[in-house]
Every structure is written in structure tokens, then in C-alpha cells.
Design a protein around this nucleic acid. Structure first.
Length: 496
DNA sequence: AAAAAAC
């Protein structure tokens, strides 16, 4: 157990740490911070939940605090594989750089470039970016990377999975070789090893022991269905969600289309649920995640965009609507619960077509999940409506009609009609009273429509705050008032 | 087999 005060951080940074309430460093922080402060490269083998983000943010703040960025010449760069992860790093930066004059900008896709370009022009110390938007802006000549003193690569193995390695290589080559590099990956496949050999200089290798393959704080269940029918799976999911004491939960699906269908289905049945995946508008992704974190949203239906890295401190339940094809993903998914010593529960729906994937999962977790049968549901009699069916409802029974509405883009019919099929399909787990549970769902739909209709979505509180931080309170239209900073009087130096 | 990421 090492206190932060023993790691060599400056008093300002220590104060920022103290303000967050943390006093004891995690193993990765304890090992990485002194090495990074000494200016050495770090190769950190660690996954999320180990305190990795603070392990690189804190020394970064300290090492950058003395200098000042010039226009279009950032001094540090953090790369993350997903927009949400980048945003999370930015939040960490906001916390720990509070007492300094450092500024930063989040460079991610899916949002307007305007603010990002303005920040770059003004001069920003730290770029926190996903590779696509960073390179896009670079190719448009919006910044140079020759002034980068410190570069962080987070979740490198995931970048590999996502095909980002050529981009990362290119970015490495755009930064000066003398830079310091902090490189993090949960695993070290050969491609990643090669990358570190090429771009890191005599790195100190730090391994934070994985908190066991699957945390002991998570109780794992599997429910076997006799059919792969989607409607049967959704019925089973509702029964599982209703069975326990779900404070909040994440429902993982393998496909984005399935995420939409399952979220919609849960909403129609009166659950407070919303989808998140990469095809959704970024403003909606941000808002949905914020709602889920704050407790305003109970069920997050997600693709694997939310499986890794996202730091949601208190998730009581994880539901695997689908068995993930990669066993690793199972570990990441259920790792969203049972964090920081809390208890968590994980459920997985398994159908006959999941045999292969399930074998891989069971082999990896080396643990026998609790079999949880759903008695009283006649799955064999549940049939999904054929996909190529015409849109007319002629000749259909009540249950099927209800299912069709569930598929519709945004059902308008009153929610009281919704649980028709529940009479026949759910015997053990009654649908919640519509009047009690339907309201949040309708509110959510309305918000979504509004967001689409508004040309310039409102700044999230966090973004507004960042804008505030970048801009003096006395801002009157001329960003610098009468005092034009020195870097603006100098011509911008192009190309090294 | 699919997810993610740039316009």
C-alpha cells in the first residue's frame, strides 16, 4: 500500500488527487508514476479497473505543467480506441489538471470539427483523440505533431482488433523520436510487441496483475433455451431482468441491429432501457451513457462498444443476451459489474446454436456458472414473426400483432396495449404495471426526436465546462482582449 | 461473425 504522496508528484497535482478523495495508489499507479515522472517510457500491461487512466494522466499533468503550448503545436497526445474512452480520459484530465494552466481538447469523430479546430488554433497542450479524427485534422493541416513531448497509447490491443495499428504507426512517425511514450495494453499479441519494439525506447515493463480472470465478486449464471428464436430470447431476457434485484444493468448483444431490437422490445414492455452502439448519433451515445452513469437510465442495451474500458462504477447486473463469439469479450462484458469490491451478477442466455462459443467461454473462465432454468415459460410455443412478412396485420393473432409493433421504428400506439403477448408468454415474470413504468420510455422517445430536429445540439454540461475552462470568464468576443499572446505574434513554423 | 473508427 503506497500513498500518492510518496510517488514524487508535485504539490498541485497531489492536491487534485486529494480532492478526488483518493489516498492510496493502485499497483499500476504505484509502479508507473515514478517511472513516467523520470521521463522514461512505460509499457503497461493492464486492463481497465486497475487505475490505468490516472497512472498516465497524473505524471502527464506534472511533466507538462511548467510549459505552454503554441498554436497548432500540441505538447502531448493521448490515443484511445473509442470515443467514449477518449471522453473518459478527458474527464480524468479535467480532474487532475484543475490546479494548472494546462488545457486540452477532445478530438473525436461524430461531433463538429469547429470547436476542435478553434482550440487547436488557440494552442492546446494535450490532444485526447481517437485515431480517425486526429489524422483527419492532421491531413487538413490543422496541427503539427512535431512538438509532441509525450504520447500515450491506451488499450493498444483493442486498437489492433479494430484495425488501427497502421494509423497508430503513422501517428508515431509524425511525432518526434525524442518523445516519451506511455503505452498500455491488456494483452501482448505479436503485432503489439513489434510496435513497442519499434517505437518505445528501453521501456520499463509494468504488469498489473489481472484481478483474476473473472472477479470473485461476480456470480455467473447461464440460462439454456431450447430454441434460438429471437422472440424466445427476448422473453427470457425480460424474465431474467424481472427476477432479481436489478439496480441497473447492461444487456450485451452481438449485433448493432439486435441492440436496437432488444432495446425497443424492452421499452415496449415498460422497461427503462436505451440502446448504445456505434451507429447511433454521438450526441445520443454521450447522453445515454451519462444517463446510465447518473442512474437516470436503468438498462443500457449495448454492443461491445461498451464492453471494454468504460468506467461505470456501479453496475449491479450484466445480461449477455448473446454469447459473445470471442471468449475474451465475455470477461470484459461481465467485468462491467462486480467492480471495486462490489457484488455483481452476470446472466447469459444460451441457445443450441451457441455451443461452440459457450465452450470457449467456459474454458476461459474455468468456473462453473450456475444453471438458471426459467420454469413456466413454454419456449417451444413462442414463434417469431417471419422476417419477410408483409406489413399488413391481416390474418395475425394478437400476440403477433404486438410483436410487429415492437419492430416498428417508433411505435405510437398507447403503451397500455403493449403487454398483450405477456398474458401468454410470461407466466413466471409478470410485466410491470404499464402506468408505473411506461412514462420514462415515452419521455426518452420524445427527447430523441427533439435531438434530431435541433440543428445544433446543446453542449453537454461537461463540454460546456471544458469550453469555459479554455475561455477566460471575461471573454468579450476577442479571445485575447488587448493582450495578444506571444505565440500569435510569431509566424507558425511549418514542417520540421 | 461482428464490433469499432473519418468525412
Amino acid at each position: 500500500m503506497t500513498e500518492f504522496s510518496k510517488l514524487g508528484l508535485s504539490p498541485t497535482t497531489l492536491q487534485a488527487v486529494a480532492d478526488t478523495g483518493y489516498t492510496i495508489a493502485t499497483p499500476i499507479q504505484e509502479q508507473a508514476i515514478p517511472v513516467a515522472l523520470a521521463g522514461r517510457d512505460v509499457l503497461g500491461i493492464a486492463q481497465t479497473g486497475t487505475g490505468k487512466t490516472a497512472a498516465f494522466t497524473l505524471p502527464m499533468v506534472d511533466r507538462l505543467a511548467s510549459g505552454r503550448a503554441r498554436a497548432r503545436m500540441p505538447r502531448a497526445l493521448v490515443l484511445a480506441p473509442t470515443r467514449e474512452l477518449a471522453d473518459q480520459v478527458a474527464e480524468s484530465f479535467a480532474k487532475y489538471a484543475k490546479g494548472t494552466k494546462l488545457n486540452w481538447v477532445l478530438l473525436i469523430g461524430g461531433v463538429s470539427m469547429g470547436d476542435q479546430v478553434a482550440a487547436l488554433n488557440k494552442g492546446v497542450d494535450v490532444l485526447i483523440a481517437t485515431p480517425g479524427r486526429l489524422l483527419d485534422l492532421f491531413d487538413r493541416g490543422k496541427m503539427l505533431l512535431t512538438g509532441v513531448e509525450l504520447m500515450v497509447v491506451d488499450e493498444a490491443d483493442r486498437m489492433l482488433d479494430m484495425g488501427f495499428i497502421p494509423d497508430i504507426e503513422r501517428i508515431f512517425k509524425l511525432t518526434p523520436p525524442r518523445r516519451q511514450t506511455l503505452f498500455f495494453s491488456a494483452t501482448m499479441p505479436p503485432e503489439i510487441t513489434r510496435l513497442t519494439q519499434q517505437f518505445l525506447k528501453d521501456p520499463t515493463r509494468i504488469e498489473a496483475s489481472r484481478p483474476a480472470t473473472t472477479a470473485d465478486t461476480i456470480t455467473q449464471h447461464i440460462t439454456r433455451l431450447p430454441t434460438s428464436d429471437p422472440k424466445a430470447k427476448r422473453t427470457a431476457l425480460r424474465a431474467l431482468v424481472q427476477r432479481g434485484d436489478v439496480q441497473n444493468g447492461i444487456v450485451f448483444c452481438n449485433r448493432k441491429s439486435e441492440v436496437d431490437i432488444v432495446a425497443k422490445s424492452l421499452q415496449v414492455h415498460g422497461f427503462d432501457a436505451a440502446p448504445i452502439h456505434g451507429d447511433l448519433d454521438q450526441s445520443l451515445r454521450t447522453k445515454t451513457l451519462a444517463d446510465f452513469r447518473s442512474g437516470a437510465l436503468k438498462l443500457l442495451v449495448a454492443s461491445d462498444v461498451a464492453a471494454r474500458g468504460l468506467d461505470i462504477p456501479a453496475v449491479s447486473h450484466v445480461f449477455n443476451y448473446d454469447v459473445p463469439h470471442h471468449a475474451d469479450d465475455y470477461v470484459h462484458r461481465i467485468g462491467r459489474t462486480g467492480r471495486a469490491g462490489r457484488l455483481g451478477e452476470a446472466f447469459m442466455i444460451v441457445t443450441p446454436s451457441d455451443d461452440k462459443s459457450l465452450d470457449k467461454v467456459l474454458k476461459l473462465i474455468k468456473k462453473e456458472p450456475v444453471e438458471l432454468p426459467l420454469d413456466g415459460i413454454d419456449f417451444a410455443s413462442i414463434q417469431d414473426r417471419p422476417r419477410d412478412d408483409s406489413r399488413s396485420s391481416r390474418g395475425r393473432g394478437r400476440g403477433e400483432r404486438s410483436e410487429r409493433s415492437e419492430r416498428g421504428s417508433r411505435s405510437r400506439r398507447s403503451v397500455e396495449e403493449a403487454p398483450v403477448e405477456a398474458e401468454t408468454l410470461i407466466e413466471t415474470a409478470p410485466t410491470p404495471a404499464p402506468e408505473a413504468e411506461a412514462a420514462p420510455q415515452r419521455a426518452r422517445s420524445r427527447k430523441k426526436t427533439e435531438a434530431k430536429a435541433t440543428p445544433a445540439p446543446q453542449k453537454t454540461p461537461q463540454k460546456a465546462k471544458q469550453a469555459e475552462d479554455r475561455q477566460p470568464a471575461s471573454f468579450t468576443g476577442n479571445p485575447f482582449g488587448d493582450d495578444v499572446p506571444a505565440f500569435l505574434r510569431r509566424p507558425v513554423v511549418l514542417a520540421g
